[in-house]
Design a binder for these strands. Structure first.
Lengths: 244, 244
DNA sequence: GTCTATATAGGGATAGAC
DNA sequence: GTCTATCCCTATATAGAC
């Protein structure tokens, strides 16, 4: 049986606090405040407020005075944590990608069978975006507004997860019994479906669709499309029970 | 055989010029310039430049000075065509929706069979977004930055096309032989796949995927998922030839 | 109808006290 | 480490000439 979101969440260190800690550790010359406890606490506030404000009105439209009000820090204090407004976007994107990418790689390293790899890739991607929805939404929406260098990194990161899907599919076509379908297009569409989960999260929440249900659906549509004509994949039994 | 994009394009009046004409006709108190030829020509320039600039750096980040430079109109002249920067977004969204929505409705009114309706809905949606890609991209990306009232209209419009897909699917489940699949989820995923076409257009262009090929793929994956287990839908024969 | 010149506000960023 | 006060620039929007 596949892992549920509840189980997944317990085994993973991923939050805006982790992100802030990563910024504090790796960019010491960007963060002037040296006391770890204070720095991480306030950085976390800054990151959370930035995601909240930018996701509701856009990053450009969010002023540092808005940010100052939301975090409880003064304008001057903000600049003890960031070098500039632009710097803030870069840090959030960069370190978030570091965390998320690492977890996805770790999870997949343990699986060999193409069908299982596809299932794990789908679920992990969805679960990560569920835990960090504001970050995923932010990166997607603000990517085009970044300076050239950062923008290219964002596009590359996105393509690399698409290539991951693509490689799993072609591997399955070689030796997993998958049908001979355009792997490029299928990977792209799968990516689009997974992205919809965090882009339209409010809609799915309103309809009471759980991330586990969405994952099961995504797996089913892709795997049954890839399965040889005669046999359709049966969706796995899933317990709705909540014990993790 | 399904209609190709080339054929579709010939039978449809849809462009930023049509959009500008719609603005000129319906918002006479917004546009101070009264000579139709001049007004529509300059409005078209303004709309085109706005879409270009906003889609590359974001609407907020685009200044009216940028717009002035791109259109060749002075700051003062711009204000003979729009009441404010915010007004500009509203007009573009509103009138675009009017045009696009009308065409989609017209096309579907002629078809009864659920399978054919689904095909036509998919193709029409893709073809419209192909003809007006900058507009679709703009509306998607800037929706969340709109004032409350406009934002709700944008969300409603999006949900209404999703409901359209939903209704076709459930109709097909009643009397078209479609499998009993969660119609809500499938409609949502189909929408996501169609949106990916205009959101990631550069990627598909680079890979030389034509809109006709993408349409065929989208139809195939959805219809084969809905088809009863035994029989898979065969993709229709498609000519690659260019005669329209 | 279109231009130049200007009013006015709000933004990012910094200086220097505490 | 954090605050207040301030600098300076750019943005939207308008006035008034042509």
């Amino acid at each position: 049986m596949s892992e549920t979101f509840k189980a997944f969440r317990c085994g993973v260190q991923l939050s805006t606090q982790e992100l802030s800690y990563s910024i504090f550790r790796q960019d010491p010359e960007a963060v002037q405040v040296k006391k770890e406890a204070v720095a991480v606490r306030n950085l976390t506030r800054i990151v959370d407020a930035t995601l909240r404000l930018a996701n509701s009105k856009g990053f450009q439209a969010m002023s540092l005075r808005d940010l100052s009000a939301q975090t409880g820090l003064s304008m001057g204090a903000l600049y003890a944590y960031i070098r500039s407004k632009e710097d803030l976007v870069s840090l959030i994107q960069q370190h978030g990608r570091l965390l998320v990418g690492g977890i996805l790689r770790d999870r997949l390293a343990q699986v060999r069978d193409p069908t299982q790899r596809l299932r794990v890739a789908i679920r992990t991607h969805l679960f990560l975006s569920e835990m960090m929805q504001p970050w995923f939404y932010f990166v997607y929406m603000e990517a085009k507004n970044l300076p050239e260098r950062e923008r290219r990194q964002a596009v590359e990161a996105e393509l690399s997860t698409e290539h991951l899907f693509h490689d799993i599919i072609t591997a399955g076509q070689r030796d997993g019994g998958f049908r001979d379908i355009d792997a490029d297009l299928l990977a792209a569409c799968l990516k689009a479906v997974l992205q919809d989960w965090y882009l339209k999260r409010a809609k799915y929440h309103r309809r009471q669709v759980s991330v586990d249900a969405y994952a099961a659906f995504a797996e089913d549509i892709v795997l049954s499309y890839l399965a040889p004509s005669a046999s359709r994949t049966r969706p796995e039994n899933r317990t709705v029970a909540d014990q993790s």
